[in-house]
Write a protein that binds this DNA or RNA. Structure first.
Length: 675
DNA sequence: CCGCCTCGAGTTCT
DNA sequence: CTCGAGGCGG
């Protein structure tokens, strides 16, 4: 006789109530009140409590039921075989526990069978009934046993065949799968709704659910819905046409159904884990639809009955490896604008900090003003933010349902003037972009100086963003040439400047005067003149004065330099302010010469691409080494690449090298090439 | 004129 | 790292 802790009992009751309320809001009212992650947390806590105290497991506990009663406006549909849900594993350890349990139940057969791995689409589960290959009915999952008949709506989805292709389909069967709305379609649909003055949808899954339950099929036909199939159910006694889940997926495809991409037949759990990591870190961000995890199934279907079902609810042969949610709702506090070095006005979103995929997101780029207009983003909106792997956070769109209807926030208007200096903004070549044309704009000066001092330009250590701002505010500098007049005494006057750091900074600035012309030229920040073009110019002309007086045609003659760069360079040197800057730099005794490049070298004519972490050399050292020996380093792999030098943990370039047949070498082999 | 190869520029968080 | 556009070769 076990004694139940009264605190546990009270907690269980609270959890049950909260879960029931969330279920009702989600399934019945279609208005989710808590996030999926929060729901999962509550659910698991309740499960754990009940496991510890079996007497708490009441007959009406949500852990026993699969869902709730469906809304009754639609005709009911009884599933041939119940549509069960899946147990969850949130990490590799829980996945391992699952396998351990399987092996205890069915022995090593499980290992030999391997695992079928599929994406878990975040959509609406449906069941399609085919008789003699013809679609006769379709239903939502409902409570798992009885769903809603939405046949007419499902028929409007083009990726659902009305008649199956191929042969070998059982007389009557239900194809199980997921209806979803792609991100692109979701965004487009909301844009159209904004134009039509209609309310907009909160997120793709709710849109798909809402579209399926429309009473008028014409309405759901207009929605961009898709379908992926993942399973088949038949009457007992019907021979399954496939032996394994993976074969079944192939069979579904041969019948003309779509199966979610990136599936894998894994031999071991280690492979499953590696695959799931790749999906979560890399693949997920590229998909045009939401996934909330991966489904792992024992591949051999003959083992399924033996493994049984947990609590009448979750079959043991499959488990959902859940990912951290990569989408969250948060408030867009304000749309702000950054002024770039080139004068580009870059809008970004300041967000109420929100946890997504293990990182706190506060800022997200909005790219350009066209995009803000299309999505109709406004200060104060609740927005959907997506972030996956190492991808930069992205604002998918507003959730206007949550906008105060009586008092909507003001529509965002692109700036007419530079927010920093007030100069009239001008449109750029790229659509949606605006520029501040003022060369003396303080923001542009700040960004320009940061670029000047940066590692790849003049490489002045200790001259950080904050320091530059401090020097500008103190009126000690306005342009890069002023740096070279700075004296330690002036810096020591400033706050937070120790004697030693003042001397070190002046020292670093003085040392940078010797940088080759190519770096100085790049540091000046002339439009279209990056590292490569700067080096080309410096090598070709040899010194600053010959570049300054070069004609457009003389510059055009250089291989790799075309009209855009030539015009930009001659234009820059024609500007009196620029000429004054050059003269001040000359007085500061900066190096205006490019050292003669030796034209020999073991790597002459070869092109290299670096990826991953090399054994001893840093990426930069390796690049220097290659260039010192006459070779070239580029960023992308192409047919012209001679070698890809790969280290530990290489990126996507390695894959591209193998597909293009480019030889891949390591650091040791690179060194051998030098001799 | 088209397609491929490069380069330039901007960007978030740990 | 990725997108977009510059530049070149066919």
């Amino acid at each position: 006789m076990t004694v139940v802790d009264p605190a546990d009992a009270a907690r269980a009751a609270t959890l049950r109530e909260e879960i029931e309320r969330a279920n009702h809001n989600y399934y019945v009212l279609d208005r989710p009140t808590i996030s999926d992650a929060e729901y999962d947390r509550l659910f698991r806590e309740l499960q754990a409590l009940e496991q510890r105290n079996p007497t708490l497991r009441t007959a009406d506990s949500p852990t026993i039921r699969v869902g709730v009663e469906p809304r009754s406006a639609l005709v009911k549909h009884q599933h041939l075989v119940p549509m069960l849900s899946l147990g969850n594993a949130f990490n590799a350890e829980e996945l391992q526990e699952w396998e351990d349990r399987l092996i205890r139940l069915a022995g090593d057969e499980v290992r030999r069978s391997g695992y079928a791995c599929e994406l878990k689409i975040d959509g609406v589960a449906v069941s399609l009934t085919y008789r003699e290959g013809v679609l006769i009915a379709g239903a939502t999952r409902g409570n798992g046993v009885i769903g809603e008949n939405v046949t007419a709506n499902l028929r409007t989805i083009r990726s659902i065949p009305l008649r199956l292709r191929g042969t070998g389909h059982p007389l009557v069967m239900e194809v199980r799968g997921e209806v979803y709305m792609p991100f692109s379609g979701f965004v487009r649909m909301n844009e159209e709704r904004v134009r039509a003055g209609e309310p907009v949808f909160a997120n793709p899954r709710n849109s798909a659910a809402g579209a399926l339950r429309q009473l008028d099929p014409a309405v759901s036909a207009a929605r961009p819905l898709r379908f992926f199939a993942y399973q088949v159910a038949f009457h007992d006694g019907v021979d399954c046409p496939a032996r394994s889940q993976f074969e079944m997926l192939d069979l579904l495809e041969s019948w003309g159904l779509l199966v979610a991409p990136h599936r894998l037949c894994a031999e071991t759990l280690v492979d499953v884990h590696a695959w799931a990591e790749t999906i979560e870190q890399r693949v997920r961000a590229e998909l045009d639809f939401a996934i909330d995890g991966a489904v792992v199934k024992v591949n051999d279907m003959r083992l399924w009955p033996e493994l049984g079902v947990v609590g009448g609810r979750e079959p043991r042969y499959a488990i959902a490896r859940k990912f951290a949610p990569d989408i969250a709702e948060t408030r867009l506090l304000k749309i702000e604008i950054n002024v770039g070095r080139t004068g580009s006005l870059n809008p970004f979103a300041v967000l109420q900090p929100v946890e997504i995929g293990g990182a706190t997101v506060q800022l997200a780029t909005l790219h350009n003003f066209e995009l803000i207009r299309e999505k109709d983003l406004r200060d104060g909106d609740i927005v959907l933010v997506k972030r996956a792997g190492e991808v930069i956070p992205q604002v998918i769109g507003p959730v206007p349902d949550r906008r105060d209807r009586d008092n909507p926030p003001l529509r965002f208007n692109p700036p007419t003037h530079c927010p920093v200096c007030g100069t009239k903004a001008v449109p750029g070549i790229d659509r949606g972009m605006l520029y501040c044309p003022n060369f003396e704009c303080p923001a542009r000066q700040l960004e320009g100086l940061v670029h000047f001092a940066s590692r790849r330009a003049m490489d002045i250590r200790g001259l950080s963003y904050a320091r530059i701002r401090q020097l500008l505010d103190a009126g000690l500098i306005t342009d890069p040439s002023d740096l070279f007049d700075l004296r330690p005494g002036q810096l020591k006057q400033l706050e937070r400047f120790a004697d030693r750091s003042a001397e070190q900074l002046v020292q670093a600035i003085q040392a940078s005067r010797a940088q080759p012309l190519s770096r100085l030229l790049f540091a000046l920040g002339i439009d279209h003149v990056g590292e490569t073009a700067a080096r080309q110019l410096a090598r070709h002309f040899g010194n600053m004065d010959d570049i300054a007086k070069a004609t457009r045609d003389e510059i055009l003659a250089i291989h790799g330099i075309g009209e855009a760069i030539a015009d930009s360079v001659t234009g820059w040197f024609a500007n009196p302010a620029a000429r004054r800057l050059v003269e001040k730099l000359r007085r500061g005794e900066l190096n205006f010469e490019e050292p003669r490049q030796k034209t020999t070298g073991a790597l002459r004519g070869m092109t290299f691409v670096l990826t991953g972490t090399l054994d001893t050399l840093s990426r930069e050292q390796a690049a220097d080494l290659i260039e010192a020996n006459g070779g070239k380093v580029t960023s992308g792999v192409s047919k012209k690449t001679s070698y890809v030098v790969a280290g530990a943990d290489p990126g996507s370039k390695l894959e591209k090298a193998t597909t293009l047949g480019v030889p891949v070498i390591g650091e040791q082999e690179l060194r051998r090439l030098l001799t």
